[in-house]
């Protein structure tokens, strides 16, 4: 390790690496702040009240339909994926043996690594075309939920693993069935962390685009039904608006970005606050 080199040279290199590393870290933080500041400042410059109060079509009008659409899509996707992910987590935690457990874990890890656009393509082929839903809330939410399952399954598994073993043993000792232990002990005491994971998952889902381009479509108004009625969403406004040559659509794109980033940061903060409170209690 210690080469026969002058001590002065080695001290100098040490100082240089430390200084360069810290400078790069500071530069990265500056870049992060720059992205955030640029988005919020750009949005503030271009903001008009009607952007939040009226519906629009990415070139004129407002964002109300897109805001509602983003919540509808990520809310429904959360409901669908939570339903499936909770059972995956319960199976891993309480029922599965080594082989089924590793199959389920591998599935979750693999789903987390599939590119967003591949989900988009699959959702388009299966939900939109083969199942005939058309561009719609249901097709978009189903596609989005595929991408959410791994996040939820992982956080629910962690939440249930965090429940003290003594509680589980005590419940079994009192004669509780396995299902009673799951529903009354694991899910109840794991709830704060499960909710924290769900908020994190929604914050990621709300920022996704590629899954929705060819499954949700775009609607200048609100969807009228789950299928065959297109939905608008905020990330689409960012993509479509910023490529327009005129200032107003670009303003919409900036305001939509700021809304998205703001929403995501708030959800993340609540999620981390819940998580921190749980960890302190444990």
């Amino acid at each position: 390790m210690v080469r026969a080199r002058g001590m002065g040279m080695r001290r100098l290199r040490d100082a240089l690496v430390g200084a360069a590393g810290l400078a790069i870290s500071a530069l990265l933080l500056a870049a992060l702040l720059l992205v955030l500041a640029y988005v919020f400042y750009g949005a503030a410059l271009r903001f008009e009240p009607e952007m939040l109060l009226t519906m629009g079509n990415t070139t004129s009008g407002g964002l109300l339909n897109a805001i509602v659409g983003t919540w509808l899509l990520s809310g429904l996707a959360l409901a669908i994926s939570a339903l499936l992910a909770i059972f995956v987590a319960i199976d891993i935690a309480q029922y599965a043996g080594a082989r089924v457990g590793s199959l389920l874990r591998a599935t979750v890890d693999t789903m987390a690594a599939i590119p967003a656009m591949v989900y988009g393509l699959f959702g388009f082929l299966v939900f939109v075309i083969y199942l005939g839903m058309g561009y719609s809330l249901l097709a978009g939410s189903l596609t989005l939920s595929l991408m959410m399952i791994p996040y939820l399954a992982r956080s629910t598994e962690t939440a249930m693993g965090n429940v003290p073993k003594e509680l589980v043993a005590a419940a079994y000792a009192l004669g509780a069935s396995r299902w009673q232990v799951i529903s009354r002990v694991l899910l109840r005491f794991g709830r704060p962390l499960i909710i924290s994971g769900a908020l994190l998952t929604v914050s990621i889902g709300a920022g996704e685009t590629a899954q929705l381009l060819y499954t949700a479509g775009w609607n200048p108004g609100l969807p009228t039904w789950f299928t065959h009625s297109q939905v608008g969403y905020l990330t689409y406004v960012v993509w479509a608006g910023i490529n327009q040559p005129t200032p107003y659509p670009q303003g919409l794109a900036f305001v939509a970005s700021a809304l998205l980033v703001g929403m995501i940061l708030v959800l993340l903060l609540i999620s981390k606050w819940l998580e921190g409170r749980e960890v302190r209690r444990a």
């Binding site: 640029y38 914050s203 920022g207 910023i242 970005s257 980033v261």
Partner: peptide
């Protein structure tokens, strides 16, 4: 945590 499209806009 920053969405992909926001990076695109930036």
């Amino acid at each position: 945590a920053i969405p992909s499209v926001v990076y695109g806009l930036w």
